[in-house]
Amino acid sequence: MDDWASITDKAPSPEPAIEIVDLSKRFGSITAVDGISFAVKRGSVTGLLGGNGAGKTTTIGMIMGLILPSSGSVRVLGADMQRDRYRVLARMNFESPYVDMPHRLTVRQNLGVFARLYAVVDAETRIGRLAKALALEDLLDRPAGQLSAGQKTRVALAKALLNDPEVLLLDEPTASLDPDTADWVRTHLEDYRRTKGATILLASHNMSEVERLCDRVIVLKLGRIVGDGSPAELIERFGRTNLEDVFLDFARGRRGEMT
């Protein structure tokens, strides 16, 4: 992988990349996230798993500082995301299916604008390398609105990797992709994590994706953490053969909250 340079010689920091303490979010009478706490170790890939309305996107929104918590705190790379998020935003990035890029701008123009926002040095070279790594070279001068879903996902991933983020937040990164493109995206995420030592927090409905990518899985249901462990631990703990069965047990109420 020439396109990602290794930083594995960096000394690991004892401080977690993401630290969430007693985090809650209420929208009127609806409690979307209900007093969750967890820490994400630097350099790890953590999956947030849960059905629709489990609180995954709200949790990621609060980690980004785009949603203010009702109570509790979020720290990313040591910064309080309610009060001090500009200190670390340049070291983070995200991708979400709820967010798009201007359709009339070409891929190159879109990436160029974000490279400037993130003050990426030698942006042209960086965009060229990402385009090569993510097979976007032939798409750079096409308007973003003319791309297929899979191509758009790759462009969104390029945008998310532009600033070499230390913390990468991904909300359903392979949603609506065909199996081949989804597998391709997962391979690149694995490469990026391995070579950069980045921390990845991933919300997904896709069990095989979570099983393949994540060191640790946090299962959310109705805004609460109901399961926490590595995919293998969760499968073994609940006597199942795969993560999907574990998830279905939680979703259908066949499991209580994990202690």
Binding site: Y86, R87, L89, A90, R91, P102, L105, Q109, G112, V113, F114, R116, L117, Y118, A119, V120, V121, D122, T125, R126, R129, N163, D164
Partner: peptide, 24 residues
């Protein structure tokens, strides 16, 4: 070397970021 400039991302006001938006 290809990382954000250390000073600019932290700057309280950056003309570079204004320029980025204007280009957009």
């Amino acid at each position: 070397v290809i990382r954000p400039r250390p000073a600019s991302p932290d700057a309280a006001f950056s003309l570079g970021r204004v320029d980025a938006m204007l280009r957009r």
